[in-house]
Structure formats: C-alpha cells, structure tokens
Write a protein that binds this DNA or RNA. Structure first.
Lengths: 228, 228
DNA sequence: GAACAATGTCACTTTTTTGTCATGGAAGTG
DNA sequence: CACTTCCATGACAAAAAAGTGACATTGTTC
C-alpha cells in the first residue's frame, strides 16, 4: 500500500501542482482548501503525512496543526507547514506547535518531495530500506519475503501485511480495531475476534521450535511487537 | 538527561556559534571539524542528533551520513545537513542518503534550533514513547509497560489504568468516586469499596521487598501518590 | 474441474481478571 | 478505654478476554 498524503492548500493552482507531483511519485493524495474540512478528512482516514498551508480558510493552518497534535490518534502524523511569509517568528511558532518541517514559498517541487519522503521515512520505517528487522526476523517489503535466522518462512498475504504492520510500529500496543483499519482497510466490517485468529496463524508461521514469540498480547488493549 | 548533539563543522567560527547556541538551549554539545573523527565520536557515544556540514575534511559529509545509515546502531540518529551550496541536486542527494533535514547557509540560528528540536521530538518518542516516572517506577503509555528499577512488572488492565491515573496526578488526593469516574468511567455503578481492593492489588504488584509504597492512604478522603 | 491455499466465523476451552463479601485490624473520638 | 469509622486482606465465584481447532466459502493454480 502506497503512503497517503493530505494536501491542505487553498490556492487551487498550487494545490493541483502538489497533487500532480505527489501522485506522480506514487502517493495516494487527497486535498482540500479548507481547514475545518481538513480536520474531518484526517479523522475519517488518517493520512501518512500532511502538507499544510498556513493561510487557509475558516481555520488557520497553525490551529489545524494544534488540533491534530492534541488528539492522541493524530499526534504522530508528520506535518509539513507551507507558507508565503518568510518571517522567522512564524516559523518558530510553526515548529513549536508541532510541525515537523517548514517550507517557504516559492519552493521547488522536488525539494518538497524530498522533504516529504524524509518525513515518511522517519514515521514509517518500511520506507527507509525495504528490509525491516526484528531480531533474527527479516521482512523484505518489496520482494514480499520473510526470513527467520536465514530460513525462509511462508506467510499468507494477510499474515504478511499483519507482520509488516507490527514491524513498522515496534513497541507500540495497537488495538484490534487499529489493526483492522491498518491491515484490512478502514471500511472493513470484520469481526474483531478474527484478528485473534490471524495473530495465531502469524505466530504459528514465524515461531519455529524454541524461538521467542515476538508478539505480546496485552490484555484488554491489543497486541504489540517488542524490540528484541 | 538533556539531549546531546554532535556538531560536525570545520569552519571554526560557525562551529563555535552553533555550539554556543545549542549549549544555551541546554543541549550537551560535542563538536569536531573532521569527518573521520565524527564517525569515531558517534561510535563511542551515540548523540541524540547530528548537525553535519557537507564540506568537511577527510571524509565528505554525505559519506559520513551514508556510513551512519549503514550501521544498524546509528541508523536511527536524526541528521541535519548543513551546506553552503544552494543547489537542488545536492539537497536531493542529501535527503536520498538519509538526511532528515537540510539547511543552507546562511541560516538563522533560531531556525536551526527549531529544526533540531523538531527532529528530536520526532525521533525520541518512537523509541521511548511517553514515559511517566515516579522514583524508580516507569510507566510507558504507548507500549503499556511498567518497570521498577529496570525490572518488568506485571499489572492487570485495571491496575495499569489505576497506576497511570495516579502518575498523571502526582501529589493529588483523589476520592474513591473520582477514581471510579476516572479509571472505570463516569457511568459505572461499582461499589466504592472495590477501589480499596484494586489499590491493594496495585500495591502488591508494584512493591517488591523493601520498596517504599508510593500510594498514600488518606483517611476519610481517598488516596494519593506523592512525589518520591 | 480437482486440488490447494487463504480467509472469515463459530463453538469451545483455557486463562486471567474482576467485583463482592466477610473478617480483622488500625486510626480517630469522646 | 470503649466505641465507631474506616481501611486492609484473603477467598471466591462470575465474567471477560484470549487461545484453539474445525469448517464452509471463496478464489487460484494446474
């Protein structure tokens, strides 16, 4: 699944330029020119990153940023602030509010793309190299291969996505609903218990005799994959 | 412990300027003008972030960056590249190599500080999560783990929420009703005595032999967790 | 079209957690 | 000290949560 980016920009020409460039790089792009709408869009489907103009309608960009940071669900989404002003004070304020990067117009699209990529690399480790690691487990994102201690493992598609989901979020406890959203997709009406079953299948597939189980069950909360 | 930053810059004046500014912000700063030495310094003591000039002696900055990214131990350290050139190609290359941010000279020290802060904010919690502390007790909210003196403790779901509730309100005496509202939820018709039982279970779980009990009973009022 | 793999559910078991109660002890009160 | 309140504790049954094996369904491969 390609990373998704939300563009919040009310200059239509610029918005289209950004959308086009990002799409060309393979991102899934959605856009809006309205701050309030942006918040709703983030709520309903968390993007992997947000490009946020400072001067937009209804709600100023910095306020959008503040709102997003306040909510635990959205606090970790990387935000790149975009502004016409070159004033230092604004930039400092942007960073203090929780922005991760700050670009002033006019900017080069390629620079913006590079910066977005850098942000995503931080937030989603799978984009850094194509190989994720956990102890002796290696997961190659591009070739869809998983190995443990050099030996190839066979995982079903869902198990693969599930394992990848965990490896991208080391140490983090995720609820069954979050897992469903992330692995099955936002709009799946699948029973939460089904997650348990797939967790078992995943465990069975990756744990050979006397391997330590990387997946920790957290009662009443979900599951997590701890760093080894 | 304050975050540590390594400054790699061969222009002595600029290096001092950076060092001075960072120190004033409370960072622990070390510096060098040599690429090779920089690698050694990182090896011997991982800094929390690195400011790296592109043009330095012996080993060019981008090569240092590449080396650091290759080693699993240092791959996660945020790097801010610094350069005199304003050329786009260089910047793209910097990002591709794994830099997290890229600032061209001349720059404002305050901007640099803001960017470093943003990098640290993002890089740190991904590993540590938000950790609450009380003396030697650590509670990690995102990974749902509790430790005392380094040793992992096992708490049930309710005990975990209860401990978190107290750690978020140090020094405050809370009534049983407040605890029920905060830990069980506003609309729970549970006996107030039940709180006592869970307090006991929590005490039992976190107090090993000759530990001091962090929870103070306040007769006729409730309970409180004092700062140690 | 047969064989096979993957997937979502269900029923059932096992394990852990939780709320309540009865009892005893400690702390305040007059 | 006698008395009342309030809290600590151990036990226990009920409930909740997670683990497990089996099965029907749906595609896919050959």
């Amino acid at each position: 699944m390609n990373p998704s980016v939300l563009v919040v920009e009310d200059d239509r020409a610029l918005c289209e330029l950004l959308t086009w460039n990002l799409s060309a790089e393979g991102y899934q792009v959605r856009s809006t020119g309205d701050g309030e709408e942006a918040l709703l869009m983030v709520q309903e489907q968390h993007p992997d990153a947000i490009i946020l103009d400072w001067m937009i309608e209804h709600v100023p960009g910095i306020e959008v940023c503040r709102q997003l940071r306040k909510d635990k669900e959205t606090a970790q989404i990387p935000i790149l602030m975009l502004t016409a002003r070159g004033e230092e004070e604004d930039m400092i304020r942007g960073f203090k509010t929780g922005a991760d990067d700050y670009v002033t117009k006019p900017f080069s699209p390629r620079e913006l793309l590079a910066r977005i990529e850098a942000l995503l690399r931080r937030a989603r480790p799978s984009l850094a190299g194509s190989v994720l690691q956990w102890g002796d487990i290696e997961l190659d994102v591009t070739s869809h291969r998983v190995r443990r201690g050099g030996e190839a493992l066979h995982l079903g598609p869902t198990e693969f996505r599930l394992l990848r989901y965990f490896m991208e979020r080391p140490n983090r406890v995720v609820s069954r609903q979050q897992i469903l959203d992330g692995v099955w997709g936002m709009d799946s009406d699948i029973d939460e218990r089904t997650v348990d079953v797939h967790i078992r299948r995943l465990r069975k597939a990756i744990n050979r005799a006397n391997d330590t189980d990387p997946i920790r069950t957290v009662r009443a909360a979900g599951y997590a994959m701890d760093v080894s």
